[in-house]
Amino acid sequence: MARVSIKVNGKDEACEIKPRTLLVEFLRDHLGLTGTHVGCDTTQCGCCIVLIDGKAVNSCTMLAVQANGADVTTIEGLADGGKLHPMQAAFREHHALQCGFCTPGFIMSALELVAKKKNPTEADIRYGLLGNMCRCTGYENIIKAVKAGAEAMARVG
């Protein structure tokens, strides 16, 4: 067993886990944060993406022990009570989700994308989301939502 201490959505979480525990298993099974999903096993679908120290990372291709001491943000950590984060709100406004399974990963990727470039072009967004797959939307409304979300985030600072 290994002891890990990870800050998740602002809360320190410390526990004993088997070293083979993936970060996504730690989040889903140990903490009950089931908003982070597993869609593949080859690091391609992006359903499991979370932010680690602000960077978008595939939580299914990382051991929880590798995140020891890190600051992790999951989809559950974005909304302020009943008020959606501007990027979440943009996804709703632009109908950027249908089944919603891939959505948390897209939002986390979008947040890093906007952190790196405040006003991304359509091409920036398309290339910036290459690590996320969606089978429902044809990406069309996701691109629009990320653009709008970036603008909204710039407005609120």
Binding site: G46, I49, A56, V57, N58, T61, S109, G131
Partner: peptide, 9 residues
């Protein structure tokens, strides 16, 4: 190479 989240790790 790969995609942004892979390149982060």
């Amino acid at each position: 190479m790969a995609d942004p989240s892979v390149r982060n790790r």
